[in-house]
Amino acid sequence: MMPYFKFDYFGSDTGLFFAFIIGIGFGWFLERAGFGTAKKLAAQFYFKDLTVFKVMFTAIVTAMLGIYFLSVFGFMDISELSVTTTYIVPQIVGGLMLGVGFVIGGYCPGTSVVACSTGKIDAVFFLIGVFLGIFIFAELYPLIENFSNSTNMGKVTMPAFFNIPYGIIVFLVVLMALGGFAGAEWAEKKFGYKKVEVINED
């Protein structure tokens, strides 16, 4: 029965080995997609290149459908998957900070690791900033602990919150993603980088 770790197929040391392997796959596809450069990531927010949106939503839909069908056909116990607790107001504030930080810094924490590994100096500086940000958060934690733990809604998923069957939400997310992809292709044609003919000067 999946997830294997939760059904004691192996111990946590073996889990660390899988962590490393899964990380390699994660890093590989981030780099393949072009997320090792801030220019490509930031272009998302000027409608020049919507790769970020396309990759992210294809990934979410793929994993979501996989989990859904594995559970429907009885291969996976979905209740064993770890769900982070929703603290809605801190998460909204944190999300806005991340968004602003994204367009200022040019990376998010995961993509900055890939960019560091491929030699991007700005990503090294970005990562130093991430450590500083976490340090500041930790040092201020006694002051912001109350806010950070406010509006606790528990471990709640959209099907539970909206009281709509899981499969319907899955279907709606797929529809939304397909609509988004069509919109992204249209936007890239309208606002994207114009194709410039390259003249070879020897």
């Binding site: 944190g94 900070m97 810094g105 040019g106 924490p109 995961g110 500086f125 970005f126 991430v130």
Partner: peptide
């Protein structure tokens, strides 16, 4: 800008219990 954006991200990610990943 890279350092400053990273700081916002680090702080925001702790408030939000995670980042884009």
């Amino acid at each position: 800008f890279a350092v400053f954006g990273g700081m916002l991200m680090g702080f925001g990610a702790k408030l939000a219990r995670g980042c884009t990943s």
